[in-house]
Simulated scan of single mutants.
Amino acid sequence: MKYLITGGAGFIGSNYVHRLLERGEDVIVYDNLSRAGAPRNVDWLRQTHGADSFQLAQADIRDAASLASAARDVEVIVHLAGQVAVTTSVTDPREDFEINALGTFNVIEAARLSGRDPIVIYASTNKVYGGMEDVALAEDATRWRYANLKHGCPESQPLDFHSPYGCSKGTGDQYARDYARIYGLRSVVLRQSCIYGPRQFGVEDQGWLAWFIIAAVTGRPITIYGDGKQVRDVLHVDDLLDAYDAAIKRIDVVAGKVYNLGGGPENVISVYAEFFPMLEKLLGRKIPVARDDWRPGDQHVFYADIRAAESALGWWPQIGVEKGIQKLFDWVMKNREMF
């Protein structure tokens, strides 16, 4: 099949392009190469698969004409391009809107107008659920947890687009869903949690697990905000890509639907109290950190109820927290010159 991967030079995108090329698929990488790691990922893909193994469309998703041209004869569009940091969205909400909301509209319009009835996978976010202030929490020795949501946050949780980032991603989320209802677009919305893995050039504001590993390995200063017991479910990128493949294979069942994709309650870790002892063991030394107050919008807890995805996709995470962290740590150590 012929695939168009927006943001195909990013962390998730380059991993998926790599997988697709290994399978012999025809791939267009659509990316403006604005993120620091993107040119490195393009070089890696070319070195691994050959200079002519894929088509690179260096363009922006805000450019509707370029996007329509790239999408005109593809069978699958995986929309990963976006502005990814909550803090950046607060600083520059207009650009965040134009990239995430308008950019996603451009993607699904390009799909609709192509006449090829392509499958569209939209990478949404758990941030569409907002702060979930109505959900009771309980505090344990090393983590916060939901008091009553045994399986985590379900897709039925009311939407609350907190922060400009939440608003812009939520806009795309609902447009992608509604285009399936109104126009019959074969789209599926995947609300992703804390994805991590190789080729993730994490920074403090985005990609926290990778950022902490990179900072610890390279000796950069680390700040822990809040009490360090904030909990997230983490999902290795290989497991995420398995879900993409399953959604494409089962599009007749999942089109127009919304699914949480995260590690779920079995792959939960607190960002400091539980993660840093693991990281210090891998590194073989203590890691100095600074402490600061909670940041606005920083949830005490998020982990996703992923049972709907399990049922519809026949999918469940296969890479546990410790194994996944070990794999990412090994990749950072092997490639520390890139950081």
Rank of each mutant, 00 (worst) to 15 (best):
S69C: 14
F97S: 11
N148Y: 08
F275K: 03
A255K: 11
V253N: 08
E25F: 04
S89R: 06
D227N: 15
L67M: 15
L190E: 00
G37W: 12
V76R: 02
P317A: 12
V231H: 14
V107A: 05
V128H: 03
D140T: 10
F302S: 08
A68P: 09
P164C: 13
G262I: 01
R191D: 13
A176T: 14
F105D: 09
T88A: 15
S34Q: 12
F54G: 01
I213F: 02
S114V: 03
L33T: 10
I214E: 06
G10Y: 07
A210G: 15
S124I: 12
G324H: 10
G207Y: 01
V268Q: 11
H79R: 15
S69K: 14
E274H: 13
R62H: 09
R145D: 08
F161R: 10
A304Y: 05
V189E: 07
I99K: 00
P93L: 13
Y146T: 00
L328D: 13
Q83P: 06
E98M: 12
R19A: 03
G166Y: 06
Y259V: 10
L159W: 12
T218S: 15
R199A: 03
R62Q: 14
Y196E: 05
Q55W: 05
R181D: 13
Y259A: 11
G82D: 05
V78F: 04
H151A: 14
P39N: 03
E98I: 04
I269V: 07
S270W: 00
I108H: 09
V189R: 01
E25D: 00
K249N: 10
G284K: 09
A147P: 00
G130N: 07
A215K: 08
S66W: 07
R177A: 13
Q326H: 11
A71V: 10
F275P: 00
A59T: 10
P93S: 14
G13C: 06
D52K: 02
D233E: 04
A85T: 15
R181I: 14
N106V: 12
N100H: 11
A247N: 00
T171A: 15
V321F: 03
G184I: 10
R307E: 11
I222D: 00
L261A: 00
L235Q: 03
F275Y: 01
V289E: 11
W44I: 02
V332T: 07
V188W: 01
V84S: 12
G115K: 07
G103C: 13
Y225N: 00
E280I: 10
A85I: 08
K127H: 14
W294M: 14
R62Y: 08
Q318M: 07
R35F: 14
A81T: 08
R186I: 04
F161C: 08
L45R: 04
G50Y: 03
S114P: 11
K127C: 15
T87L: 12
L80T: 06
E204R: 13
T48A: 06
R220Y: 13
Y122V: 03
T125R: 11
V189Q: 11
N148W: 09
L240D: 02
I182H: 12
S156V: 01
I269K: 04
